[in-house]
């Protein structure tokens, strides 16, 4: 048996198609959803990430603008920038490049972000809303993408045994809370756990968030398991790879996301969806 492929690309296309009429409706009432990105310096990685976001924004009609501060910007400059954007009604979503340079107090900056504009859940105050199941905030985009993919492929979450590989890391723990909020029983595994197969084999849904190429192998997986691969790294062959050894595992699993074309293909679209939703909520 071969696993059904959970295509992040297709889900992203669907979400974008659904966003277009919502954006049109907003525009008809005089509101263009806007996303502001704050970066420090000209890190090439950050710039190419933002380029991808700008392309996505353009495709669905979200306005976007990048605010570039010098690499040696002071705490005050950065905090002022965030406060200005909080107060700028053109922008419904704000993202800030991280990690911030060491001379800055990252926490103090992030906690200033207005919760209703914190579309990637960067602030601990937004995270608290997620943990305490309070409305008004947004979940971080990557873990949100996991739930979105499961929903779009009609995988039930309620009551399921979900194993999170790398569950002791920040992304994994947050995937855990999102699925727990949907009444899954969540098993947060440290990736160094001694008998991984014992845990992984009993998973109904397995989400891997480590970033170690092909660490989840076919002998660790049971037939029928739904596998969401969040990890991205370069394998020994230099190619981009997920945490899951895709070819052999896809012979056993029930459903599986590829890398690339899985979770990563959806996260930017989730960011757009959150921005549009923030604009709708602001109305």
């Amino acid at each position: 048996m071969t696993a059904q492929i959970i295509s992040g690309k297709e889900v992203a296309e669907k979400i974008r198609a659904e966003l277009q009429p919502r954006v049109e409706k907003l525009k008809a009432s005089g509101v263009t959803p806007g996303l502001a990105a704050v970066i420090l310096g000209e890190d090439p990685g950050a710039l190419s990430y933002l380029k991808g976001i700008a392309k996505g924004c353009e495709a669905v009609g979200v306005m976007t603008e990048t605010f570039t501060l010098p690499e040696d910007a002071t705490q005050e400059q950065l905090e002022k920038q965030v406060i200005d954007l909080n107060n700028d009604s053109r922008f419904h979503g704000i993202i800030i490049q991280r990690p911030l340079p060491k001379h800055l107090n990252e926490n103090a900056v992030l906690r200033l972000l207005a919760t209703e504009k914190d579309v990637d859940c960067l602030s601990p105050l937004s995270m608290a809303k997620l943990v305490m199941r309070e409305p008004g905030g947004f979940a971080p985009c990557t873990p949100s993408a996991v739930a979105e993919l499961l929903d779009r492929y009609n995988v039930t979450i309620d009551g399921k045994r979900v194993v999170v590989v790398g569950g002791a890391g920040n992304i994994g723990r947050t995937v855990g809370i999102i699925l727990l909020n949907r009444w899954a029983t969540v098993i947060l595994c440290d990736y160094k756990t001694t008998n991984p197969a014992e845990e992984y084999q009993r998973a109904e849904i397995l989400v891997s968030c480590v970033g170690r190429a092909k660490m989840v192998t076919a002998d660790m997986i049971s037939p029928g398991t739904v596998i969401i691969d969040v990890g991205v790294s370069r394998g020994e062959d230099g190619k981009m790879s997920g945490d899951v050894d895709f070819e052999p595992v896809s012979e056993i699993a029930g459903m599986i996301t590829p890398v690339p074309g899985g979770v990563g293909a959806v996260t930017t679209t989730i960011l757009l969806a959150h921005t549009v939703e923030a604009a709708e909520r602001a109305q």
Partner: peptide, 19 residues
């Protein structure tokens, strides 16, 4: 869970709704 699901702790932590 937030205390024990940490790499420095190294436990496998299950959060199980009573339901």
């Amino acid at each position: 869970a937030s205390m024990w699901a940490q790499e420095s702790v190294g436990a496998v932590v299950t959060l199980c709704p009573p339901t």
